[in-house]
């Protein structure tokens, strides 16, 4: 479902790459796209309201800030318990993303993903244990997948 018109797409591409650090950044972007700054801001506001854009703001590089450890924790949670427990896990302050995804047995038995961040590996381990306590027996098993290499990381192409 892509409700973005070509101008919205250009705006998203231009603004997710970063706003320029000059006094009137929206004017600069608008000029590049060939629209008025007022229209640009109105469209951004609309996309925020529709949820196409989650947020506009500073995007820190957590890795450069010392948050070098992260683990994708994955959980096999009883389906009946997930609607209540999922939001609780998602609400933990050290969880940045938390999603339900399908199991693909036998290779992939997990239905809950929670991305955990820390400064050291043992911090991630401690936080994963905290999630385990929260889920209790509703989680039948879990694993933590640490990333060994970032092979590609870019913004979205629309």
């Amino acid at each position: 479902m892509s409700s973005l018109d070509p101008i919205d797409r250009r705006i998203v591409e231009a603004t997710q790459a970063g706003l320029p650090f000059e006094a009137r950044p929206y004017h600069a972007v608008a000029e590049k796209i060939g629209i008025e700054a007022d229209e640009l801001m109105a469209r951004l506001r609309r996309m925020l309201e529709k949820g196409v854009i989650r947020r506009i703001g500073a995007v820190p590089n957590h890795y450069a800030l010392g948050w070098t450890a992260n683990g994708m924790s994955v959980w096999d949670v009883e389906d009946d318990a997930l609607p209540a427990l999922g939001p609780e896990v998602g609400g933990l302050p050290f969880v940045s993303h938390c999603y339900r995804r399908p199991r693909k047995p036998p290779l992939w038995p997990y239905n809950l993903f929670a991305m955990v961040h820390g400064r050291q590996a043992d911090e991630v381990t401690a936080k994963v244990e905290q999630i385990a306590r929260l889920l209790g027996p509703a989680s039948r098993r879990h694993d933590v997948l640490t990333s060994t290499r970032i092979l590609k990381k870019t913004g979205l192409r629309l």
Binding site: G51, V52, I56, A58, P60
Partner: peptide, 11 residues
């Protein structure tokens, strides 16, 4: 390198 950018995060 501490700040990646100031911009939109797309859903």
């Amino acid at each position: 390198g501490v700040l990646s950018r100031v911009g939109a995060v797309v859903e």
